[in-house]
Design a binder for these strands. Sequence first.
DNA 1: CCAAAAGTGTTTGAATTACACCCATGC
DNA 2: GCATGGGTGTAATTCAAACACTTTTGG
Lengths: 251, 251
Amino acid sequence: MSEKIRKTVHDDILDIIPQLSLDCVIFGFHDSTLKVLLLKWKGSNIYSLPGGFVKQTESVDQAAVRVLKERTALDEIFLRQFYTFGKVKRYDNEAVGQKLAHLIEESVFHERVVSIGYYALVDYEKVFPNPDELTEKCEWFDLEEVPELLFDHNEILDKALKALRFELSFQPIGLNLLPDKFTMPDMQRMYEAILAKKIDPRNFQKKILKTGIVIRLNEVKKGVAHKSPYLYRFDQNRYKEVLEEGGLFFI
Amino acid sequence: MSEKIRKTVHDDILDIIPQLSLDCVIFGFHDSTLKVLLLKWKGSNIYSLPGGFVKQTESVDQAAVRVLKERTALDEIFLRQFYTFGKVKRYDNEAVGQKLAHLIEESVFHERVVSIGYYALVDYEKVFPNPDELTEKCEWFDLEEVPELLFDHNEILDKALKALRFELSFQPIGLNLLPDKFTMPDMQRMYEAILAKKIDPRNFQKKILKTGIVIRLNEVKKGVAHKSPYLYRFDQNRYKEVLEEGGLFFI
DNA sequence: CCAAAAGTGTTTGAATTACACCCATGC
DNA sequence: GCATGGGTGTAATTCAAACACTTTTGG
């Protein structure tokens, strides 16, 4: 553990809530597949979700926003708290302590920590992945290619994905994964990637347009092979209306 | 603050996770209305939700089970973690400290606490409400008659009710509020009380019976005025099947 | 001109809603 | 015997699902 890191951890320890952390599952959508942002720890082959601690002077939500901003350079992120992980032994503390001994004092991992799980939906193109002091890479992984993760992060990821699927099934939150202008087939592929099922394009379009939450622009996407698809944009105001009407809609 | 209580709080402080608590919204159903179990603090007119701290040696879920058992004398309670409340200033620490100064050292309330919210569904008839050392009464309140509560407990209650309504809309969790044997009109009234809307009895019965999760017994409820209604019981096995089929059903 | 993806409507079946009268019981 | 709540079926409508061909573009 470098002196710098030791110092940082030590200074911070007074400012954070002890035994409480948060973990963020950051989802992106690219090449018709759902991606998740993972960190690779320095001098190792160990991966984990981005996470952090909650400062005494910030809310848990603010802490999540801060962590996300640090890792993605994005403000204004769609965030959902989905579960708090509170088992006594969330992972093999001994083993983790040894694996990370070159970076962090082992005793840190002897203490039990409760972690609040958030998931975030971001526009893949706008993200600049950024590792922190303890990690050397921050990169996107296809969901099917996620390796074994540190702590209980595979479990947290599973639960986040379930929560995302559930919520996407009746609220159009998936729009947060798309760029400002997108095509109907893009949107459909996004739904298909997350829900892991094929959807009929005619029925899909009908359903989406009926809600009125997207608006077709007088533009088509150029420079693509084959027929040029129309571009759409999200109608934030209409979306809020739909939500206030209690409007849930199923895909 | 009595010596006994001071000692208890002091002894416990080493065994619990600091700055982390949990709060339980315990719902019951009686007289066609949804009820919630509240505590009245000693020597005051202050009410709050039951809650507690998480011991170092127990999971957060176990802590919730323990709290529920202490307040209701029930094992095997239906419990759902629904949200973690993490604002920096969840309530007016000064004011609360003063209000409870006769029971607890004021400084306790100067520290910021993150609280994990659970809601429980219990069989009203089986509950023996039980105050703790700091409270003098533990009693059921109609939802409409809930007074101003301590801390941010009104907000927690609101959010629990929303979560309950949402979940009840597509999973038959409300059965946990009913006795082992119940009538179809009972069940309907329970849905009506929670969702706050009238339901057609023919359509309701059709929908419930179609799922197969309740079974009509060869008994009727005796001793009631008017026509004797049939009794039903919950089919736990069928319920599990339905859940595994991914079966959600709307009311 | 060919290959590949985009765009579009109608028909069918399933599910949901609306609706009203008779029955059994306790008083 | 009467007032009250319990029990039940059908018709109308709405909503969801199935399904295939034409159009446009780049290469």
